[in-house]
């Protein structure tokens, strides 16, 4: 075995152990969302002034948000495939597309929140709205942090090219991004769709 192969083998073992650590973080993040979903499920009828999710759910609007996030999950996958081929410029292009799709998602959500607060249905108006804002807001905050992370990775790709460390960080971000899309499945199904019935 050449020294180079030995180095690669060692690198792979370290990488898979580190990725496992990040996976455990993702699993603990699942529990945060589970608590927030439980809180929403318990409180969604505690509307106080009768204003609930049913009154403001706009199906095409939520569907647009969902499609932006789903598309961004797919384009991130394309970035990972380009990373396997060490094609730095393609990785950067796909990351920028993913970033823009994610940004559209966050913009739509911020717009929804500002409208609700402007109309006096902010998190302070009832227990139902508090749990709604906490659940959807925590998800939106995660997505925003993911976007910030993506910007940092684009800069790192410019500076360090596709080094082992950059590849590992992009794997972490990939897990994080796919996880956020999975959480969103439950947000739109439970909060918006079941709320609209």
């Amino acid at each position: 075995m050449s020294t180079h192969e030995h180095h690669d083998h060692h690198q792979q073992e370290t990488d898979s152990r580190l990725v496992f650590g990040f996976w455990l973080y993702i699993m603990s993040d699942c529990l945060i969302f589970a608590s927030l979903f439980a809180a929403f499920a318990v409180l969604h009828n505690a509307t106080f002034d009768g204003f609930s999710v049913k009154q403001f759910t706009d199906l095409p609007y939520v569907l647009t948000e969902t499609l932006f996030l789903l598309a961004s999950s797919f384009t991130y996958g394309m970035a990972i495939l380009s990373l396997y081929k060490n094609n730095r410029n393609k990785v950067i292009t796909w990351l920028i597309i993913t970033f823009l799709l994610g940004l559209c998602f966050v913009a739509l959500e911020v717009n929804e929140f500002t409208h609700l607060i402007g109309e006096g249905h902010g998190p302070d108006s009832s227990a139902a709205m508090s749990s709604f804002f906490t659940l959807v807001g925590t998800h939106g905050f995660h997505v925003s942090m993911g976007l910030f992370w993506m910007l940092v990775m684009i800069i790192q790709l410019f500076v360090f090219n596709t080094s082992d460390a950059v590849k590992r960080r992009l794997t972490y971000l990939g897990l994080f991004w796919a996880f956020l899309d999975i959480v969103w499945i439950f947000v739109f199904s439970i909060v918006y769709l079941m709320g609209a019935i």
Binding site: D15, L59, L70, F74, G77, L81, Y84
Partner: peptide
């Protein structure tokens, strides 16, 4: 390589199409 299965284009395309169909069905 991570312990997660290798990412492939067919897997991503299948995932995208199925997710799209399931989302549209629910809405």
């Amino acid at each position: 390589m991570s312990t997660h299965g290798l990412k492939t284009l067919p897997a991503y395309v299948t995932g995208l199409i199925l997710s799209l169909l399931l989302t549209l069905a629910a809405f």
